Structure formats: structure tokens, C-alpha cells
Amino acid sequence: MTDIKTMALKYGGYTSLDKVYLDQLLAGRSEEEQLALITPPPSVVNAYFAELYQKKSPQAATDYFAEVSKELNLYNVEPSFTEESKPFIRLNLSGKSFGFCYEKDGQGRIFSEAKEIITDELLFEIAQIFPHQLIFEQSGKIYMKAVGDEEVVTVQNLTALTDLENLADGRKRLKGYSQEDLLQEAKAFTGKLYYRSENRTAMLYFD
């Protein structure tokens, strides 16, 4: 792990003028206490995430939050809106409150404030917000992970709106401009299902 004081300067909003103050603030405290002290409040994390998302890209925003989560130990396997000891990113999906955190390195988690039914529409809506991520459901929970490198080996036209692509790693991908058409064609396939949306193109992946 990076030196605590270095992380405070990089992520916590402190400057080089605060080094003596930081030495006094952190002295004699456990690593857990030190991390809690230098972790920026949820409002700051959300504001910086939103700024990166708008001014750079969705990937720049998630890269920032992934880095902060790793360095400041913000990983959370049981996130909720009632316990905010660890900052998370707030999302508004169809007028309802959701949160985004990382459970572990490389695996994001989307969770709702109130109990919500997980639908294809919801998963595609999340995919539209994070076009560089694959969205999937597992054990009644919503997760996301980076798309990664992809190489298309063959392409087959299934309908006027939907193509079937075979990827070099063995996965299959349905790709088209109509989510409804895509979901209809997906009924013919088996395997773990991943959702993605980019540039108005909807995609479904099968392991």
C-alpha cells in the first residue's frame, strides 16, 4: 500500500502545506484509523466522479473510483444506503436511487436504496451509463466488469437489426439497434448473460 501521507495528498484534498499537520493528525493511530481520516467525504468523491464523467469519459470516472477504492480500502461486499462509512457513487436510474461501489479489484457492484426487481431494461440502462463495462446479474445482485480486449472472428446476420458475432475467446455476442429484438434472439442461446450498450448499439454476450 502507498504511504498514508502520500495518499492523503493525492486523494484526501490535502496539499504540501499540510504535511506537518498530517504528521500530527496521523501520529499514533492505526492504519485503519489513518485511512478513515484521509478518506474524502462522499460528496467530494461523487463530485469528482461526476466531473471526470462529464469532462473526460465514463471510463476516466470509473478508473478514478477504482483507484480510490483500492488505495483507501473502500471495497464493500455488503453495500447499503443506511451505512455510509465507505463512500459510494450515487446513481439515478429511472427516477430511483442506486449506488455503485467496488466489491474487489475489477468488480463493481450496483445496488438499490429500496428493493427493486432486476429487469433487462434496468441492466441495459446501467450499461448505457457505463458503455465500457459488462453488466451482469448473479445471485440476485448486479455486477459489472471491464469489457477488455475483443476480437471478432465471424459475423452472421440473424435479422435486419441483429448480428451474431463469434469472438476469439469463445464467447458469442448479439449486437443490434433494438433491445427488444436482441432479447428475442437471445432466447435461442444458453450461458451466462452480460449486457452492454455503446453508441446506441445494444449488445448481449454469452459465455
Rank of each mutant, 00 (worst) to 15 (best):
L25V: 05
L26V: 13
G28I: 06
R29P: 02
R29Q: 13
S30Y: 06
E33K: 10
Q34A: 09
A36Q: 14
P41D: 06
P41R: 02
P42F: 03
S43L: 10
V44R: 14
A47V: 08
A47I: 07
Y48V: 01
L52I: 02
Y53I: 02
S57I: 04
A60H: 12
A61V: 07
A61N: 06
A61H: 06
F65L: 02
A66R: 06
K70I: 00
L72D: 08
L72S: 09
V77S: 15
V77A: 15
P79F: 11
P79C: 09
F81L: 03
F81T: 04
F81V: 05
E83K: 15
S85D: 13
S85T: 10
P87G: 02
P87S: 06
F88T: 09
I89V: 15
N92R: 04
L93E: 01
L93D: 01
S94N: 05
K96W: 00
S97W: 06
S97I: 00
F98G: 01
F100P: 03
Y102W: 12
K104G: 02
K104C: 05
K104M: 12
G106F: 04
Q107Y: 11
Q107N: 06
I110S: 00
F111A: 10
K115T: 14
K115M: 05
I118R: 03
I118N: 04
T119R: 09
